[in-house]
Nucleic acid binder design. Structure first.
Length: 367
DNA sequence: TACCATT
């Protein structure tokens, strides 16, 4: 799934007067509030040299650093630039903030002074109402302190940025950790006005805390998806009539499927009392249970692709261990193909596990 | 052993 970021590109006002090389009267440290910038949302593949070259084109740099993972050396997507001349810092913000580099839109703003109190002030929010936008989320959280950055993650239908839909997940970075703590106390488990579902608010996991192995696994999966994603499903797609032939015992390339499905299509459509997820712009969401801890996205593409148009697959993993939690989701465009996939794959033995496959149920909620 | 989402 392609994830697009909605984020304000405005920069933070800096913290008052000061200029490079002038010593702060209280502690004798240089005041670089007018020269030191933080750069966010850099492309993952940008090197230190490219980073320096881009910002060096504005003016003389005192120092700069692309921040990287301690173990893997992988870019964490942000960095700092300290100019000699505050005018160049200002110019960098004006000319480079909002610059589009590959798929990213970089953010250039004054860096806040390094301090223990601003660390771990980043929150992860889930179960947000799908119709809540970034501004509304900020409004909800702003009562607890000054918000530095915020964002809501959205699904993006390939090739049409207007059909974005919130994933109900976002981030809020406060100025101070105590503000973030208060926001958790005040908002975790609370229902936003007009919403029936409580939101989850917790400290965000920091990607740099991931193990090197998990990062490499993630990179591998991101790369591998190129060869198994929706743009290629036509090449492995089979026609519905060949599936019907198979049901009558005709030889088929789908011989890996069970000859007799444990359920019929009718039983799928007629499950009493179960509300199926409505077809959204994205299609029909299918719940796949009993995947192995090692399962990855490619197995879902392989299983469901033969039945028709698959627009998205997702293996749910534990964020810290990166192991599959035993289930995943597949989105298919057409109801008939989704129903056929469910009828055929529910009860299918994958390795030493028997899959349970059904339409995703609507999330249960207490009255 | 049961319905996600981690910039």
């Amino acid at each position: 799934m392609v994830t697009q970021i909605i984020s304000t590109m405005e920069t933070q006002a800096n913290n008052g007067p000061g200029s490079a090389g002038i010593l702060n009267g209280t502690n004798g440290e240089p005041d670089d509030s007018k020269t030191n910038l933080i750069v966010n949302y850099l492309p993952q593949n940008m090197t230190q040299e490219e980073f320096k070259s881009l910002f060096g084109s504005i003016g003389e740099i005192e120092s700069c650093k692309l921040v990287r993972d301690k173990i893997t050396g992988q870019s964490l997507g942000y960095g700092f630039v300290n100019y000699v001349d505050p005018n160049d810092a200002d110019k960098a913000i004006n000319t480079l903030n909002g610059l589009k580099l590959q798929t990213k839109t970089i953010k250039v703003s004054y860096a806040r002074p390094s301090s223990a109190s601003i660390r771990d002030a980043n929150l992860y929010v889930s179960s947000l109402p799908k119709n809540m936008n970034q501004k509304e989320m900020e409004q909800l959280f702003s009562q607890y302190g000054r918000i530095i950055t915020s964002r809501i993650l959205v699904d993006q239908v390939t090739g049409d940025s207007t059909t974005c839909v919130s994933r109900g997940v976002g981030f809020i970075r406060f100025d101070k950790r105590i503000e973030a703590e208060e926001a958790i106390k005040g908002l975790n488990g609370q229902k936003p006005l007009g919403s029936s579902e409580p939101i989850t608010v917790k400290f965000a996991n920091n990607p740099s805390q991931k193990t090197g192995q998990a990062l490499l696994t993630h990179l591998y999966q991101t790369t591998a998806r190129r060869y198994t994603g929706p743009l290629h499903h036509q090449t492995q797609r089979f026609r519905l009539d060949s599936l019907i032939n198979m049901a009558y015992g005709v030889k088929s390339p789908l011989s890996f499927l069970p000859r007799f499905s444990p359920i019929t299509i009718d039983s799928v459509t007629n499950l009493a009392g179960v509300s199926l997820t409505a077809p959204t712009t994205a299609g029909w969401c299918i719940f796949v249970y009993n995947l192995s801890p090692e399962a990855d996205e490619s197995v879902l593409w392989q299983l469901f692709g033969p039945f028709g148009a698959v627009t998205n697959v997702k293996v749910i993993r534990d964020f810290t261990t990166n192991k599959c939690k035993g289930f995943g989701f597949v989105t298919m465009t057409n109801y008939d193909e989704a129903a056929m996939a469910i009828a055929s794959l529910n009860g299918y033995r994958l390795g030493d596990r028997v899959l349970q496959v059904s339409f995703k149920t609507s999330k249960p909620h207490k009255a």
